[in-house]
Nucleic acid binder design. Structure first.
Lengths: 330, 330
DNA sequence: CCTGAAAATGTAATCGTTTACATTCCCGAG
DNA sequence: CTCGGGAATGTAAACGATTACATTTTCAGG
């Protein structure tokens, strides 16, 4: 591998000059610059990132720590983050910490000296604890759960869920079942609160028999829907904690010969690409995940650039009600 | 930030000893080891990755270079790679190079000194060229396109497509349209070859009017299907170059009141999660993407471990025909 | 108690950059 | 022609680890 020294020697200059050329320093003659560039290309030189970041204390990498990597949600998120990062010359170090406190801590640890900042998506509330014993000046952006003193971006789960349930109520539904997300999952909990809020507002009393717990997978939605079909009096609408479960529910209903939306309305949350193509197309709450990721990256890189004197802010991005055929008639 | 020196001083040993403790060297007394560990924890020390990799010439990171990040394919791939990598203590540096030769080159360049090995997915044949001027010993695994002297893993596109078209022919179809993937995309080209092969075998002559080009997005599939509806005599089956386009096609057919599979059979390729839930469920060729990614990581890490004396191999993973309702009747 | 080899620890060079500081070069003003 | 001062370049000290090699400690065997 050619190093900066090789280039310096071959170009007849010092390493400092070569370094300056590569960092666009104005302190080099145009002639020297050209000569060095040419030699560098000829020798196939490219700076050694580790060495560079050791001495400059910048890695030009941001870490993305996710609870999982399964499904379109994370894929979109990464895409959004990458878009912004790449554009600003940053790389992405991705890690999934299967949601256990210890694993998050380990991941955070092992990223020290590897990244300039961290986007942490903590599904369970308080999972950002391990992040605490990073130096206070280390830029961290929390996605989902907020934490005092931390930058964060969250989805307006409660408001979105509330609006969707209000929509169902407006369509005349009274017995509205909900397929909950995993316990301990913050998004899931907030969406449930929105659901409860809408019912309370409308003076509809809750029936615990209509609350079925899933785990955000389509399979769990399938089973949940079957359970809901056995309620009596039977529910007339299902609000699923996310689209994947709603899709599973649609499958169960089709199998059971239950017509959607005539016999049972179904709504989801997330607006994954697939929702447009289910049969019938799924009403849902859209959150532009890629945009969310991009925004997260922007905010984080801001913090990275400032380092000092950076006030942490909390930001909530609203969802948008998308009404499709699956909730269309009363 | 605490460095190894701080720990050494506080523990009353030399930096070498601290380093040895962290690297599980057997050359330390149990007593010293414990003492150092304790101090390290107390000071919140964790080794600086850049420094470590500068001197040890190992980064414990593998790079994943993808043409894009949109859609479940890449998400699954990353998941598979991460699973293996994480388990072996490696991190993942993800980058998308929007498919242009120059960008790939830039990405490869900027990864020098950052990663121990590279998984490169090159959609266009020959896109691995920029990889060439890495030192010959640098571990690279090509995904998709093969290259002489490179390790590679590819999907059996041609065989899979051929089998699917054979299936359609067996169902009695003669006028089978194909929605092609982007020109220049290797997977797309191979799938087209499989299609042509199956037709030729069956003695069916090709009709260029039945070849519509898309770009692997559902939207392009939608438009392609509309074009296909206007062919005359009208095709009775559509083989889409991937599932996303097949899904788009299904949308167009539903809009046009064309029944699937009675009036028009539809098949795809990839078996994305959504295929199970379309209406009707989509026949497709399954490729276990996550497994593919995992396999890629295994192969790459093997090469990383060996470094020298590593024979490059080419590996092809077969697809599996998944017949669902969308191609069920003649 | 001594000896010497093995075990434990320490010293210092090294990895490839960046960058503060020192040096040299160049050129216009006097 | 000399001088001064900015511009261009060079020198060498970091950065924080790893690791040959050197040194000290330990301890079994005589």
């Amino acid at each position: 591998m050619t190093t900066i020294k090789d280039v310096a020697r071959a170009a007849g200059v010092s390493v400092a000059t070569v370094s300056r050329v590569h960092n666009e320093s104005p302190l080099v003659t145009e002639a020297t610059r050209r000569r060095v560039r040419k030699v560098a290309v000829r020798l196939g030189y490219s700076p050694h990132a580790a060495a560079r970041s050791l001495s400059s204390k910048k890695t030009n990498v941001i870490g993305v720590l996710l609870p999982d990597l399964y499904g379109e949600f994370y894929s979109e998120l990464i895409r959004g983050v990458d878009q912004c990062a790449q554009q600003r010359g940053f790389h992405l170090l991705v890690a999934s910490s299967h949601n256990e406190r210890a694993e998050i801590a380990a991941a955070v640890q092992s990223m020290r000296g590897r990244v300039d900042g961290l986007i942490v998506m903590s599904p369970a509330p308080g999972a950002h604890r391990p992040v605490k014993d990073l130096p206070a000046t280390f830029p961290v952006l929390l996605l989902g759960a907020a934490g005092a003193g931390f930058d964060s971006i969250a989805i307006a789960n409660e408001a979105g869920a509330r609006e969707m349930v209000q929509h169902l109520i407006a369509k005349g539904h009274r017995r509205i079942a909900m397929i909950l997300g995993p316990r301990e999952n913050q998004d899931a909990a907030e969406r449930f609160e929105g659901y409860q809020g809408a019912l309370a507002e409308a003076g509809i009393e809750e029936d615990a028999a209509l609350h079925v717990t899933g785990d955000f997978t389509d399979t769990s939605g399938y089973h949940a829907a079957r359970a809901i079909l056995n309620t009596s009096p039977r529910a007339t609408a299902i609000f699923a904690g996310n689209d994947a479960m709603a899709v599973g529910a649609l499958g169960a209903l089709r199998e059971a010969g239950v017509r959607v939306p005539e016999d049972m309305a179904v709504a989801g949350f997330d607006d994954i690409p697939m929702s447009r193509y289910t049969h019938p197309p799924l009403s849902t709450v859209r959150v532009d995940i890629a945009a969310l990721g991009e925004r997260a990256a922007v905010r984080l890189l801001e913090a990275v650039a400032n380092h000092r004197r950076h006030r942490a802010r909390r930001e909530v991005v609203p969802g948008q009600l998308i009404i499709r055929a699956s909730t269309d008639s009363p």
